[in-house]
Every structure is written in structure tokens, then in C-alpha cells.
């Protein structure tokens, strides 16, 4: 049962990776990577149950924290990129 869940999650991760490669805009890629990270958290948890080792859940918690921080950091960078090359709109002054 856990193996089937793990395979299902791997399929979802493969589709997310496909969107990461296909994604025309940079935000599509960040979206796909964020989804991939969340599914990794689930995969680690299910794999921990599959092999009967409850300490995998600590890894899953850590990965969930790091994934969120990483996505927010990349988004801050992308917004900085957009602000630098964009002409300031008149209503901003």
C-alpha cells in the first residue's frame, strides 16, 4: 500500500519536473520546483513508513522547512530582477 503511494507520488514528481522543463516563464519553473519539493516531503514520509523507520519524519520536517525558505528566497531574487530592469511606473512616485 505504501509502495503504491510512493509510486503515485513519483508520478506526480515526474509531471512536476516535466512542467519545470516545459515552463516558458521563470515563475512556472519556480512553481514546479516548489511542487516537487512538497512532494519530496511526502515521499520521504511514505518511504519512512515503507521501511518502518520513524526517524525519516524528522528529515521530512526539515525538508519542508528548507523548501519553503528556498522558494521565498528565489522569489525575492526574481522580484529584485524585475524591479531593476523595469521603468518605474508614474503612479509609483
Amino acid at each position: 500500500m505504501f509502495a503504491a503511494t510512493a509510486i503515485g507520488i513519483l508520478v506526480v514528481m515526474a509531471l512536476a519536473l516535466a512542467r519545470a522543463f516545459l515552463g516558458p516563464t521563470i515563475c512556472d519553473r519556480i512553481l514546479a520546483v516548489n511542487m516537487f519539493g512538497t512532494k519530496t516531503v511526502l515521499l520521504i514520509a511514505v518511504y519512512g513508513f515503507l521501511t518502518g523507520r520513524p526517524d525519516f519524519l524528522d528529515i521530512a520536517i526539515t525538508y519542508a522547512l528548507i523548501n519553503f525558505i528556498g522558494v521565498i528566497a528565489v522569489l525575492k531574487f526574481v522580484e529584485g530582477l524585475a524591479d531593476s530592469e523595469r521603468q518605474p511606473r508614474p503612479d509609483e512616485f
Binding site: C27, L75, V78, E79, A82
Partner: peptide, 14 residues
């Protein structure tokens, strides 16, 4: 929160 930040960044990058 991540989805909101993502959509916000997307609107800024046009």
C-alpha cells in the same frame, strides 16, 4: 504563502 508570493512575483515580472 508560497503560492501568494509566487503569484505576486509573476505579476511583477509581467
Amino acid at each position: 504563502v508560497a503560492s501568494h508570493a509566487l503569484a505576486r512575483a509573476a505579476t511583477h515580472t509581467g
